[in-house]
């Protein structure tokens, strides 16, 4: 099952490798090896292919030494092995700037922001969603406003969040909460409404009433779907991370990425992005497995 999932990664990797390692595919640049007679060429420099051909022709005309070089891709497309190396060195060698955080420190910072944001959002959003879905009156009262609010882009609250919550983790967590919460209430209310009405009726004929209808029937009835919703929403929270971390003092994995991009260490940028992907995908895979174990009665299981 895992093997089949990893299989779908092979094709993109193959394309990336072909573009990187076969000099006749794309490669719009030339990496200069010896400048020859061209006064502004430096070894290791990347120039456009046309530019290189033009200069070579000029040198030939003037009878000067020809420059030499190999076809290359632009700096923003490093080859797989470069990214792999960056991934390795990021965890093994000290950062170039002193007092800059290690990659794993940046990551841990980001994961904490996500988890706090998601937990806070869920603590209110899940119960509210269930109540909205169970009691029509509550749903009608609160959902139009939530529906309106969810269209307000979460990043727009950045400046406000900083003004209210300071410049450190507070506003970042707030952005994740704002980005997740309103969707969460609506999605979970909807999931709750889809619970078979006869289950609640059956419970009522068996003498269940009041709060116990929610705790003993609605909640266990929607639990597998609720769990699936939460997995999707957690992925949602990750997409707000980059914006959230740019607010106030830049921090976490975003700080790492923007810093590395500034120094044109694109292999490090790709390495960091890859790690985000691996963490997100890996945790979802893990949670999916856990779901199978937790809900043995669930018929609409994810196909694995």
């Amino acid at each position: 099952m895992i093997a089949r999932k990893l299989g779908s990664f092979l094709l993109p990797l193959l394309v990336w490798s072909l573009v990187s390692y076969l000099p006749f595919i794309w490669h719009p640049k030339v990496q200069v090896e010896a400048p020859g007679g061209v006064d502004y060429f430096l070894p290791g420099m990347l120039v456009d292919r046309e530019e290189f051909a033009q200069q070579s022709a000029d040198m030939r005309q003037q009878g000067l030494a020809l420059p030499t070089g190999v076809p290359a891709n632009p700096i923003y497309l490093p080859a797989p092995h470069q990214v792999a190396k960056a991934l390795y060195t990021a965890f093994t060698t000290e950062p170039e700037q002193k007092d800059a955080p290690w990659l794993h420190e940046s990551l841990w910072q980001s994961i904490q922001i996500i988890l706090w944001g998601f937990l806070l959002s869920s603590a209110i959003g899940v119960p509210l969603g269930i109540v909205c879905g169970t009691y029509q009156s509550v749903g009608r009262l609160s959902e139009p406003f939530i529906e309106f609010f969810r269209y307000l882009p979460a990043p727009a609250f950045g400046a406000l969040a900083v003004a209210v919550l300071g410049i450190y983790d507070g506003p970042k967590i707030a952005i994740i909460v704002i980005g997740t919460f309103f969707q969460q209430v609506l999605i979970i209310a909807n999931t709750t409404r889809k619970l078979e009405a006869t289950l609640i009726e059956a419970a009522r004929t068996l003498g269940t009433r009041g709060v116990r209808l929610i705790t003993r029937v609605v909640l266990p009835g929607i639990l597998p779907d609720l769990y699936r919703d939460q997995r999707i929403l957690l992925g949602w929270a990750w997409t707000y991370l980059i914006v959230a971390e740019l607010i106030g003092t830049s921090s976490g994995i975003t700080f790492f990425i923007t810093q590395q991009a500034r120094y044109q260490h694109f292999e490090n940028v790709y390495a960091a992005m890859l790690i985000i992907g691996v963490i997100g995908f890996g945790s979802d895979l893990l949670l999916g497995r856990l779901g199978h174990f937790l809900f043995p009665w669930d018929r609409t299981r994810d196909r694995t």
């Binding site: 006869t198 419970a203 068996l206 003498g207 003993r216």
Partner: peptide
């Protein structure tokens, strides 16, 4: 007591759990 056409058993409870539901309530 009521028996519905669509069974409407609680899918998260075992057979015994379903029957125990009423007495527990």
């Amino acid at each position: 007591g009521m028996v519905f056409q669509g069974y409407s058993l609680f899918p998260w409870l075992t057979v015994k759990g379903n029957v125990m539901f009423g007495p527990e309530m």
